[in-house]
């Protein structure tokens, strides 16, 4: 049925037949680069990719919004039922968190009316939009970065913080670093035990507890587990040499990271932000940076597509080890 063996093929069974036909008309080269499929109530069906977007209509891609297919309530309801495998009752926690992970590691973000309980979101009702975010493993994304993160004499990995604006390729880099460190790389030698605390199921893209993306043979994944609870749990029971987690931000996450660092375990993590100054203004993170907990800071951007490596900085003295304009060690 499909011309291309792409991520789109994997999300196809989760779309109602009405929407499947629009996707089928996509040119294969576009199908390969689509990053997001947006379904918003009463608004056009839109595809997004790095540096572009397109409306979908009866005859595939259309150029005028008026010609685009408008998503209706039934489309959203049916799609939600399909992504929950006809079992909304089994996805309460995911619905509360606002996303559902699909086989293949793809994620569907939800937005709608939030029902609150004790000051926290209990569930989203009346879903108004769904965003299919397609997971693509970029093998080799970490190969360029890894040499800067290894203390060659000891074969140790430096505590590393990856910094980039949203959709800058942080998670892709974390995933590939996990794979390289776990499986072993020439710069590192034998692989090391890696623990991933995957609070939002983004790094390993686990579905029913099984990682759907390659994160290495010596990697254990704590899926959908909060960092503050997952990191101590990892330390106690899974003896990792490296813990990888993403999107640090809360005070309790930072405490857990400090505890791991003091236990002699390497931490590789990521944070949203464009510059170091921006991150230093966030109270929870500033203590980590001011006390130089991280020995390497990796900056990414989308200037030449997601995952553009901008700079690698030595954490304590702020020395640039790599900049996009020229390498200097």
């Amino acid at each position: 049925m499909f011309k291309y063996p792409s991520a789109i093929k994997e999300i196809y069974p989760f779309l109602p037949p009405r929407l499947r036909c629009f996707i089928e008309f996509l040119p294969s080269e576009l199908g390969e680069k689509v990053e997001e499929i947006r379904l918003r109530h009463s608004r056009p069906l839109i595809l997004h990719w790095a540096g572009g977007e397109a409306f979908l209509g009866e005859n595939g891609i259309v150029h005028r919004m008026e010609e685009a297919y408008k998503i209706n309530g039934e489309d959203l309801e049916q799609t939600l039922e399909l992504i929950c495998n006809h079992s909304l009752y089994a996805y309460e926690e995911e619905l509360r968190q606002g996303y559902i992970t699909l086989p293949g590691g793809h994620r569907v973000g939800l937005a709608g009316r939030a029902i609150m309980e004790k000051g926290k979101v209990k569930i989203f009702s009346h879903i108004g939009s769904l965003n299919f975010r397609l997971a693509r493993q970029v093998k080799g994304a970490g190969a360029k970065v890894l040499p800067f993160l290894v203390e060659r004499e000891k074969g140790r990995i430096f505590h590393t913080l990856i910094i980039s604006p949203p959709q800058g390729g942080k998670t892709t880099l974390l995933r590939d670093l996990a794979r390289l460190i776990s499986d072993g790389a020439s710069i590192l030698g034998e692989g090391q035990k890696v623990g991933i605390v995957d609070e939002r199921s983004e790094i390993a893209g686990s579905y029913q507890g099984v990682p759907q993306l390659e994160v290495g043979m010596r990697t254990d994944v704590l899926d959908a587990c909060p960092k503050a609870e997952g990191i101590p749990l990892m330390l106690r029971s899974l003896s990792p040499k490296v813990i990888i987690t993403d999107e640090l931000g809360r005070e309790e996450d930072v405490l857990a990271v400090k505890e791991a660092i003091h236990c002699g375990v390497t931490i590789i993590s990521s944070v949203h932000g464009a510059t170091l100054e921006e991150i230093c203004h966030r109270p929870a993170l500033s203590s980590l940076l001011e006390n130089s907990y991280f020995e390497r800071l990796v900056f990414l951007s989308r200037t030449k597509g997601p995952g553009t490596l901008e700079a690698i900085i030595e954490g304590e003295r702020g020395l640039p080890l790599f900049t996009a304009r020229g390498k200097g060690e």
Binding site: C84, H86, S87, L88, Y89, E92, L95
Partner: peptide
């Protein structure tokens, strides 16, 4: 009734 609503509703 199948698969409709959260656990309580179901």
């Amino acid at each position: 009734i199948w698969g409709r609503g959260d656990k309580k509703d179901q």
